[in-house]
């Protein structure tokens, strides 16, 4: 079991090493001619107006929240699918009950308009 994971650790070290080496290489070899205009945030060539730290739409929170709760459902589906052959029709009905409860929430969210992007 654990022997299966050891190669992943090696591969991780390799990938991380590749990333770090790239960073260091571009630091060493890249030309550097800083200039306040060049370093200012990009805004199509004009002077930046205001700050980039503005508040975003609450829509993004709703999307992430819906994703989180549906992801839980998806995660329950995986062990269920693996043992499904043993559970047979019983397994079907227990998951149907689960999905129906989530579906009720989904319909509620839809009716409340949380899935609409435009106002």
């Amino acid at each position: 079991m654990l022997e299966n994971w050891a190669p992943i650790l090696i591969f991780f070290i390799l990938a991380a090493g590749f990333g770090l080496v790239s960073l260091i290489m571009s630091y060493l070899f890249g030309v550097r001619k800083p200039d306040p205009r060049k370093l200012s945030p990009y805004e199509c060539g004009v002077h930046p107006i205001g700050t980039a730290r503005e508040r975003c739409s609450v829509k993004f929170y709703l999307v992430a929240m819906l994703f989180l709760l549906f992801d839980i459902e998806a995660v329950f589906l995986f062990p269920w699918a693996v043992v499904y052959r043993e559970l047979k029709l019983f397994g079907f009905f227990e998951m149907l009950l689960f999905i129906l409860a989530i579906l009720a929430g989904y319909i509620y969210v839809w009716k409340k308009g949380a899935l609409e992007w435009e106002r």
Binding site: L62, M65, L69, L97, F98, I102, A104, G105, V109, G113
Partner: peptide, 20 residues
């Protein structure tokens, strides 16, 4: 497990009500 689905349902509703 089945009770969990109710928990998720309630969390879904609660979060939408609070956030919108």
């Amino acid at each position: 497990f089945e009770a969990t689905s109710l928990l998720i349902l309630i969390a879904l509703m609660g979060a939408v009500v609070f956030a919108k």
